[in-house]
């Protein structure tokens, strides 16, 4: 996940190196967790999927936008994510991106759920379900 975003934030070189190291360690540990979680873990069921869609659009949306066009965080549209390996994106979802405002969401998501979210993002994320009375 070295797309130069950290550089733009203007960290001193030493800080950046440390952060990148920490970031790499985190990525690899999270990847391990994701692999374990992913192995044998079923894809989220329909009820959980609806919750995940709402979570991504509404809560992730507070930085990335309801339409995922970006805000304080980058856009999460298929075009903007193209060329980024799914594993790195899953790691970012679960472990966050040190040096940026992106926190890790592993408290709330299993590896399989993060993988499902990333897959949907790369494909074009599903819309919010309309609630009764709208």
């Amino acid at each position: 996940m070295t797309d130069g975003h950290e550089n733009r934030l203007g960290y001193a070189k030493e800080g950046l190196v440390v952060r990148l190291l920490v970031s790499r360690m985190l990525v690899s540990s999270v990847l391990a967790v994701a692999a374990v979680g992913g192995a044998g873990a079923a894809e989220p069921d329909l009820v959980r999927r609806a919750q995940l869609v709402s979570m991504v659009r509404q809560d992730c949306g507070s930085c990335h936008g309801l339409r995922l066009t970006g805000g304080l965080g980058p856009a999460l549209l298929p075009d903007s994510l193209s060329g980024k390996p799914a594993a790195a994106l899953i790691a970012a979802v679960l472990g966050g991106r040190p040096g940026t405002a992106m926190p890790g969401w592993s408290r709330f998501l299993s590896g399989a759920e993060a993988a499902w979210i990333v897959e949907q993002l790369q494909r074009g994320f599903p819309p919010l379900a309309e609630r009764g009375g709208w």
Binding site: D59, S62, W105
Partner: peptide, 14 residues
Amino acid sequence: GYGRGEDKLPVFKM
């Protein structure tokens, strides 16, 4: 330095 060097808790919304 109001954090007194302690680890930050994750911030899920600014």
